[in-house]
Computed example of a mutant assay.
Amino acid sequence: MDSMMMDMMKSMPADKMMGMNMAMMQECIETCSAAAMAATMCADSGMGADMGKCSSMCSNMMDVATTMMRMMMRPMGYDMASMHAMMMACIEMGKACSAECMMHADMDEHCRMCAKACDAMVMACEKAMKSMAMA
């Protein structure tokens, strides 16, 4: 996240952040963005008819990661139960997409890269969730 976006996040009213760790939020937003981009490119890579499931999983991953990222960028509307549920969905979709892409990683570089981006996002979301639980 560039410094302008981080400055904007820091300018939000602290009482609306509900104990969210800003550094972990930043990492989660960045990895959600990277996973969404990787999944979009993987889904659109012209894999062929036999890769329909992978393409659909990547499209779903992009949607979930983008939604998670946008939710985190709207702290005025935080609802901890909703944020927790969305993070769980993001983690599970990231794991599923990574597993699907890893089945093709030896023959398709874009699948390997997408799986790597999904794994990084899952780790960042898990860290952010742990900070939420302590808040």
Rank of each mutant, 00 (worst) to 15 (best):
M1Q: 13
M1Y: 15
M5E: 09
M5K: 15
K10W: 10
K10G: 00
S11G: 12
P13F: 07
P13I: 11
P13N: 12
A14F: 12
D15F: 07
D15Q: 12
K16Q: 13
M17W: 01
M18I: 09
G19L: 02
G19W: 03
N21S: 08
M22V: 12
A23F: 14
M24D: 08
M24C: 04
E27A: 03
E30F: 05
E30D: 05
E30Y: 08
E30Q: 08
T31Q: 04
T31M: 04
T31D: 01
S33W: 14
A34Q: 10
A35V: 08
A38H: 01
M41P: 00
A43W: 04
A43E: 10
A43T: 05
D44E: 11
S45L: 07
S45C: 06
A49Q: 13
D50V: 10
D50M: 06
K53S: 10
K53T: 14
S56D: 15
S56A: 14
S56P: 07
C58T: 07
C58I: 10
M62I: 13
D63C: 10
D63Y: 13
M69W: 03
M69V: 04
M71H: 13
M72P: 01
M72I: 03
R74M: 13
M76Q: 13
G77P: 03
G77A: 13
G77M: 13
D79G: 02
D79Y: 03
A81C: 06
A81Y: 07
S82Q: 12
M83C: 04
H84F: 04
A85P: 01
M87F: 09
A89E: 01
C90F: 04
C90M: 06
C90D: 03
I91R: 01
I91W: 00
E92I: 10
E92Q: 12
M93S: 05
M93F: 07
K95E: 07
S98N: 08
S98M: 04
E100F: 01
E100P: 00
C101I: 11
C101E: 01
M103K: 02
M103N: 03
H104R: 11
H104I: 14
H104F: 11
H104G: 00
A105Y: 13
C111Y: 02
K116N: 02
A117T: 03
C118R: 00
D119M: 05
A120C: 05
M121A: 11
V122W: 02
M123G: 06
M123I: 15
M123S: 12
A124K: 05
C125V: 15
E126N: 08
E126V: 15
K130D: 15
K130L: 08
K130R: 05
M132C: 06
M132Q: 08
M134A: 08
A135I: 10
